[in-house]
Amino acid sequence: MDLVLQLLFTGIGIGSVYALVALGFVLIFRATNVVNFAQGEFSMVAAFLMVVFSVKIGLPYWVAFVIALICMAGLGAVFNLAVYYPLRHRTYLPVIISTIGASIFMANTTLAIHGPEPEVLSGWFDTPGFMLGPVYLDNQYVLIIVVTALLVALQYWFFEHTLLGKKLQATSQDKEMASLLGIPVALMIMITFVYSAVIGGIAGILVAPVLFVSIGMGATIALKAFAATIIGGFGDVTGAIIGGLALGVIETFGAAYISVPYKDGFAFLVLIAFLIFRPQGIFGERVAEKA
């Protein structure tokens, strides 16, 4: 039983990381109908910014965190203007290719500026974790789980109970109609990119003390987060969370009870099963229904 509880905690912890990055995927998909393959790089860039502000410059952790997120907001805006906006009237394919290009550009720019050395980023706590009965709880994973839950709650409140949230929803559902109603569609999409970059940044900064800060960290997380998004249903926030958590738990238990080397295989087996039997994901709607 101890083993099961330990694995469950770890699965939920790693699943929360996938879920956080998946949230960014979903938000941008809802606003623009394209997948942003640079979402993982937002996490990587934010983690490196944290290293620069907190470790290299020596700013207090909270200050470094806030500055890093402000930088991420700026990066989100630039990303929108440079990667999405010029191609907004084209089909989804050029935009997707553009995001892949941006992902490679961000990874290589970081490599050129910082160099290839992985970095250590300390967490928010002085101690690494604590025992709760027979289960060891890593403080950073506890924080990740709490922050994910808070962000989901905040996002729900924001989209359902604020005018800006409703404008964003309207934009994601029908840009032309939103425009006719006087909603500044371009601004709404800009806000979405900024918010997604910040969410991706939070995920990167939170996970960095566990996985270290490296050029490849974004791609590794994003691949799983992308799978989580498909499992949950593209365009659905709840789906992204459930998908992320499910993926984390499935791969952790699969590794423990079936095979460690094939850990990633379990996650992608579930993904393939969903693509075959329920391509719209758990909560997603068919494109035809959406239309």
């Binding site: 083993l3 330990q6 694995l7 770890t10 790693i14 990381v17 566990v210 996985l211 490849g216 590794t220 997380i221 799983k224 952790t252 590794a255 423990a256 460690v260 080397p261 094939y262 850990k263 990633d264």
Partner: peptide, 20 residues
């Protein structure tokens, strides 16, 4: 005798196998 795939994000199952 426990193998693992490169670039893993979590080693909890491996560590628990060692412990057990």
């Amino acid at each position: 005798d426990q193998g693992y795939a490169n670039q893993s994000q979590d080693f909890t199952p491996v560590v628990l196998a060692v412990r057990q």
